[in-house]
C-alpha cells in the first residue's frame, strides 16, 4: 500500500488486529445501510430506483437494511461491552474520553489555521477530530439502532408507548442517517483520503502501522509517553515541513 512518507522512517504499531477488523466491519455495514437506507429516503432519485430494483425490490432492500442494521447493532453492543470491560477491569487508558483539552485543542488549531499561532495543537493518542467522529458513530449508532428497532416493530412499541413515537422515530432515523452520511462522506473521507497530509490514503486503520514522523506530527503527546521522552524533545526532533515554514512565517 502506498504511504505518504517518502523518507525512511520508523513505523510504529498504532492499531491491533481487533480494531482493524472492527473498522472493516463498520465500513461494510455502514455502506450497505447507507445504500439501502438512503435510497428509500431519496426514493425520487433515479439512482435510488436503480439500486432498489437491482437489489430485488423494496421488500428485499428493507430486509437487507434491517438485518445489516442488526449486525451493526451487535457489533456496537460488542464494542461497548469490550470497552467497558477494558476500562473497568483491565485499566485501559480512557484515551477516547472527551476532556477539556479537546476543546482547547480545537481552538488552538483554529487559531493556527488563521495564523494566530505558529503551531497546531499538540494532541494525544486521539485528537479532537477523531474523538468527534468516534462519538458521532457511537451516539449516532445507538440512536439509529433504537429508532430502527421502533420502526421494525411498530405495533410492539405502540402497545406500551404513544403512537406518535413511531413517526418521531422515523424522523430521527432518517435525519440522523443523512447527518451521518454527510459527516462520513465529507469529514471522514477528507481526513482519511483527500487531506494533503495523508493523500492518497491514510493506511493506518488497514495496516495497523503508522510512521514515527506522522506520530510526532499528529500525536506528539502519545509518542512522548511511549518513548519516555519529554514532549519538547519530540517536537524539537520533528522537522516536519509545516513546522519549519510555520516558524519562518
Amino acid at each position: 500500500m502506498v504511504t505518504s512518507e517518502p523518507k525512511e522512517s520508523a513505523r510504529l504499531r498504532r492499531f491491533g488486529t481487533y480494531r482493524i477488523v472492527e473498522h472493516y466491519f463498520i465500513m461494510i455495514t455502514f455502506s450497505i445501510l447507507v445504500l439501502t437506507g438512503l435510497s428509500q429516503k431519496f426514493h425520487e432519485f433515479e439512482l435510488s430506483n436503480w439500486i432498489i430494483i437491482k437489489l430485488g425490490g423494496i421488500d428485499m432492500a428493507r430486509l437487507i437494511h434491517r438485518y445489516t442494521g442488526l449486525v451493526l447493532a451487535a457489533a456496537t453492543a460488542q464494542h461497548l461491552a469490550v470497552a467497558s470491560i477494558g476500562l473497568v477491569f483491565r485499566k485501559w487508558p480512557a484515551s477516547m474520553v472527551i476532556n477539556a483539552k479537546d476543546f482547547t485543542d480545537a481552538i488552538d488549531n483554529i487559531k493556527y489555521y488563521f495564523g494566530v499561532t505558529n503551531s497546531p495543537a499538540l494532541c494525544d493518542r486521539y485528537d479532537y477530530k477523531q474523538k468527534f467522529e468516534y462519538w458521532g458513530v457511537v451516539v449516532g449508532g445507538v440512536l439509529m439502532i433504537f429508532t430502527g428497532l421502533i420502526l421494525w416493530f411498530p405495533t410492539l412499541v405502540a402497545r406500551y408507548l404513544p403512537g406518535e413515537l413511531i413517526p418521531a422515530a422515523k424522523a430521527t432515523h432518517t435525519n440522523e442517517a443523512l447527518l451521518a452520511f454527510l459527516v462520513i462522506i465529507i469529514w471522514h473521507i477528507y481526513n482519511s483520503i483527500f487531506s494533503p497530509e495523508v493523500f492518497p490514503l491514510d493506511t493506518s486503520i488497514f495496516t495497523g502501522g503508522i510512521s514515527r514522523e506522522r506520530m510526532a506530527h499528529e500525536h506528539p503527546v502519545e509518542l512522548a509517553r511511549a518513548e519516555g521522552k519529554p514532549l519538547e524533545e519530540i517536537i524539537a526532533g520533528h522537522h516536519g515541513e509545516t513546522y519549519k515554514i510555520a516558524e519562518g512565517d
Partner: peptide
C-alpha cells in the same frame, strides 16, 4: 399489523 393495539393508528 396483526397485533396492532388501539393507539397504533396514532402512528399515522
Amino acid at each position: 399489523h396483526a397485533n396492532a393495539t388501539r393507539n397504533f393508528p396514532e402512528s399515522w
